[in-house]
Structures are given as structure tokens and as C-alpha cells.
């Protein structure tokens, strides 16, 4: 049994703020996984998980947005029911649509990067609409590339077939999420954010 005798090393104020936001956004992405709407153009219902990825990139920026979704994966891996349908554990990460999950941190970082660049974070409201849309389209491409690749590897089928089974039914819904996310950044009741 060892005894630590270091003095308390406080976390800086700015980092505390960012860690808190990253953790809450990771939980928000998890909570979004439980919200689903019937989809007018496809039989697969729309869940809002990917919206959580977009919002993390837009509101937290490339670094902390990516970290936030990495946290989401870590929490899911150790048992928080944050993945689609309330599943959790390493099984979901290694399962047929684990590829989607692995792509989320990369997608969030890319959304943040395209929306904000490498300099300081702009207010989401001040980022131009074309830039927001470009950022989320790039994020969507990463998510579906990851999802398709994951399904192809885990299920041992070709990429084209994997895309047909695991992605096509979900793609149309992304347009609604991108439109909704643009609307969200322009909404008045979000006050200072």
C-alpha cells in the first residue's frame, strides 16, 4: 500500500469549464440517441445522435469537440447506455455499426475545424451559413465512411454492399439534421452561446 503525499494540484479555471462542457456534450449526444422521429422519406427512423456530433463540433470547436465525443465512446465502452437503442459496452464498439461510433470523434473535430478554423472559437451564431453547412457535410461524409468501413470489416462484406445495408437508409435524414443545426445556431433563446 503506497501513500501519496503530494499537495493538491488544482485544475485551471479555463480547463475546468472546457472539461465540464465536453462531459455535458458527451452526455447530450448520448441522450440524443434516445430521441427518434419517424422519417418521411425512409423507413429507418431519425435519431439525433449525429446532431450531437455536429453540435459538439460547432459549440466546442475542433479540439474539445473531438475530445467530447472520445469521452462519449469511453463512457459507452465502460457501460453507460449512450449508444443507439441504449446499448453499451465494448460489444457495441466492435459490433456491426461500431464503425459509426469510431468515426464520431473524428467527425466532430472536422466539423469544428471547418466551422472555426484553427484560430480562436467564433460564436456559432457568427459563423456563416455556407460554412456551417460545409462543416456538417464534411462531418457527414466522415461518419458514413466510418460506418460503411466498419460494417464491411466486421461483417466481412464488400464496401458497396456494406454501404447499401448500413448507410443508404440513413443518409436522407442527415439533411434534416443539418438544416435543424443551422436553425439551432440562429435561435434567439440560446442567449450568449
Amino acid at each position: 500500500m503506497s501513500v501519496e503525499s503530494d499537495s493538491v494540484d488544482l485544475v485551471g479555471d479555463e480547463i475546468v469549464e472546457r472539461v465540464a462542457r465536453a462531459a455535458v456534450f458527451a452526455a447530450l449526444a448520448g441522450a440524443f440517441a434516445y430521441v427518434s422521429f419517424p422519417n418521411p422519406v425512409s423507413p429507418a427512423p431519425v435519431t439525433l445522435q449525429v446532431l450531437g456530433v455536429f453540435l459538439a463540433g460547432i459549440y466546442l470547436g475542433p479540439v474539445w469537440g473531438g475530445l467530447s465525443l472520445a469521452l462519449y465512446l469511453a463512457a459507452g465502452a465502460v457501460g453507460a447506455p449512450v449508444f443507439a437503442g441504449g446499448s453499451a459496452g465494448l460489444g457495441a464498439l466492435l459490433g456491426p455499426y461500431g464503425g459509426y461510433l469510431w468515426s464520431y470523434p473524428v467527425a466532430a473535430a472536422l466539423v469544428g475545424l471547418v466551422a472555426h478554423g484553427t484560430s480562436s472559437l467564433a460564436k456559432p451564431r457568427d459563423v456563416s451559413v455556407p460554412r456551417l453547412i460545409a462543416a456538417m457535410l464534411a462531418g457527414t461524409v466522415v461518419v458514413y465512411a466510418g460506418g460503411t468501413l466498419g460494417y464491411a470489416v466486421v461483417q466481412n462484406v464488400g464496401l458497396y454492399r456494406a454501404f447499401l445495408v448500413a448507410a443508404v437508409a440513413f443518409v436522407p435524414a442527415e439533411a434534416f439534421k443539418i438544416a435543424a443545426a443551422v436553425g439551432i445556431t440562429r435561435t434567439e433563446d440560446l442567449g450568449a452561446a
Binding site: 462542457r21 455535458v24 452526455a27 447530450l28 422521429f37 422519417n39 418521411p40 436553425g183 439551432i184
Partner: peptide, 25 residues
């Protein structure tokens, strides 16, 4: 329409989340 429904629900969730994050910090 679906876009509006997603926006309305998500705005509420996001506003609460931002608020909770600042109180948490």
C-alpha cells in the same frame, strides 16, 4: 415539418445542456 421538430427539441436540450455545463464548472 421534421426539420422544425428536430430544431425545437434540440434547442431546448442544448440550452439546458449549456446551462448545466456552466453550473457544473
Amino acid at each position: 415539418p421534421l426539420r422544425e421538430r428536430i430544431r425545437l427539441v434540440a434547442v431546448g436540450g442544448l440550452a439546458r445542456a449549456l446551462d448545466r455545463a456552466s453550473r457544473l464548472s
